[in-house]
């Protein structure tokens, strides 16, 4: 299999507090990987390091055979190949639903407005938000915002989709609609890297589960193995706490 992103010896410190230690990890094309672990274990930081919202302190991120942490590498052209979905949605408040999905395509991918609108509508339909093209973000519920945010990322037609706890800021009754969309996407062969606290979801959709603890990858493997037959003591403990 061809790996889309490969991370070698990645580390990240905030001041003298080391959040990630020597992470080695890769995502294969078409793979759905879920990253689980308790709060503060470094899951979100890992994801944010991958698209350089946080600057890694050391290590390499290899994308298409190039280390994008090289000084000379253009981070903007790398970032447009990664779709990011945030915990807090972060829809552009000054744009309506359609423009949220169009502005990146026009400004970054240099697509024509008509083409961008067509693509945006296609993906808004995928997430079931195509009827809301005229709405402003503040007029939507949390679940609707997150679905638009997913469509915005998909409209850029990225190589990988990164999800940073996409359901953690949602009311319980809205979690379902977002997970449903994500399940459908997982079925289409999209490469996805998902940081989540939704264990049932992780068990169901992922090809591989990564368990992080205290800034290191403590265990990774197929979901059946991690959830039913974990090797590491700390994985067992974490699952006992979260699955009850």
């Amino acid at each position: 299999m061809e790996s889309v992103i490969e991370i070698q010896h990645l580390s990240k410190s905030f001041g003298n507090h080391e959040v990630l230690t020597d992470i080695d990890f890769s995502v294969q094309k078409g793979e759905v990987v879920c990253v689980i672990g308790s709060s503060g274990s470094g899951k979100s930081t890992l994801l944010r390091c991958i698209n350089l919202l946080e600057k890694p302190s050391g290590g390499k991120i290899i994308y298409r055979g190039e280390n994008i942490l090289d000084d000379r590498h253009d981070i903007h052209s790398y970032r447009k190949k990664l779709g990011m979905v945030f915990q807090q949605f972060n829809l552009f408040n000054n744009h309506n639903v359609l423009n949220n999905c169009v502005v990146g395509q026009v400004k970054v991918l240099k697509r024509s407005k008509e083409e961008a609108e067509k693509t945006a509508l296609k993906y808004l339909k995928v997430v079931g938000m195509d009827q809301y093209v005229n709405a402003k973000p503040k007029q939507l519920s949390g679940g609707q915002k997150q679905r638009v945010a997913i469509a915005r990322a998909l409209s850029m037609e990225p190589d990988v989709m990164l999800f940073d706890e996409p359901t953690s800021a949602l009311d319980p009754e809205m979690v379902g609609e977002v997970l449903k969309v994500m399940k459908e996407l997982a079925g289409t062969g999209l490469t996805m890297l998902i940081v989540t606290h939704e264990m049932e979801f992780a068990k169901e959709v992922s090809d591989r589960v990564v368990f992080m603890d205290k800034g290191v990858i403590a265990e990774e493997g197929a979901p059946e193995q991690i959830f039913n037959n974990p090797k590491e003591e700390r994985t067992k403990e974490f699952l006992k706490r979260t699955l009850k």
């Binding site: 698209n51 903007h76 970032r79 945030f86 972060n90 552009f92 502005v103 990146g104 970054v108 945010a149």
Partner: peptide, 24 residues
């Protein structure tokens, strides 16, 4: 989050400012 979302889709500082931040 507004800055991060704009950067995450590949906008540079000027594009982020012009299309997302300054209108707000």
């Amino acid at each position: 989050g507004q800055f991060e979302a704009a950067q995450a889709i590949g906008m540079n500082h000027i594009q982020t400012m012009w299309n997302v931040i300054l209108p707000q």
